[in-house]
Design a protein around this nucleic acid. Structure first.
Lengths: 107, 107
DNA sequence: TGAAAAGGCAACTGAAAAGTTGCATATCAG
DNA sequence: CTGATATGCAACTTTTCAGTTGCCTTTTCA
């Protein structure tokens, strides 16, 4: 599960919105996820494919419909591995910023 | 400070790498940030502009050089507002996923 | 069995974004 | 002052990616 794919997937507002929808109600079909968007079903299909590639969404065929499930694990890995990294030295970075801004004020 | 700009900026691997570099050593110049990349200085400049637009990086001219500082605040806002949202219902989503996968095993 | 419903596949279009090239500007060092 | 260093600006090319169009397959149900 590549971190790159996750960040790339989250980079598009429409895809985050799709995640939000699944977050509100999990297990929705493709057609359900299309409602309210002013784009074609195929466009939504592609966005879901990107989300599946990033493992943020898992899908399953049931009869003629396809159910989509949110997988929160990659999001947490980002929180832990990546955001956490910045968290640990947050104060130092903010201190640098503060010094920089103060110097700016002097001018 | 729009959340969209932050996600968009983080969507590109090169830009996350630039953040990592500033995280390792804050206050680097443009030329320093160019080293090791196989792209032109102008390309790096554009990436830094995107990062500044997202407020992930703040810069300051010092003489003829431009110093870049990491701003960790937007990253934390994402962690709090967005990732935290999924955190709160993580168990439910994972339970849905588990049910889905078990059904898959039956087939 | 056959029409409607749900979705898949592939080629195409268009626009955004990445990256380059060329030149200009500003600053420092001798 | 002069050359070297560090960066900026703008136009251009290229690539990537979102979105559409057209047609096909599978499933459901009357």
């Amino acid at each position: 599960m590549s971190m790159d794919a996750v960040f790339r997937a989250l980079g598009e507002p429409v895809r985050r919105q799709l995640l939000d929808r699944l977050h509100a109600r999990n297990g929705q079909t493709l057609n359900e996820l299309c409602e309210g968007h002013d784009m074609t079903r195929q466009a939504v299909t592609k966005h879901l494919a990107v989300l599946e590639e990033a493992n943020l969404v898992v899908s399953q065929r049931r009869g003629r419909e396809k159910l989509h499930y949110l997988n929160p694990v990659p999001i947490h890995e980002i929180a832990d591995r990546w955001i956490g990294k910045y968290e640990r030295s947050r104060l130092r970075a903010l201190s640098d910023l503060k010094k920089h801004l103060e110097r700016k004020d002097d001018e």
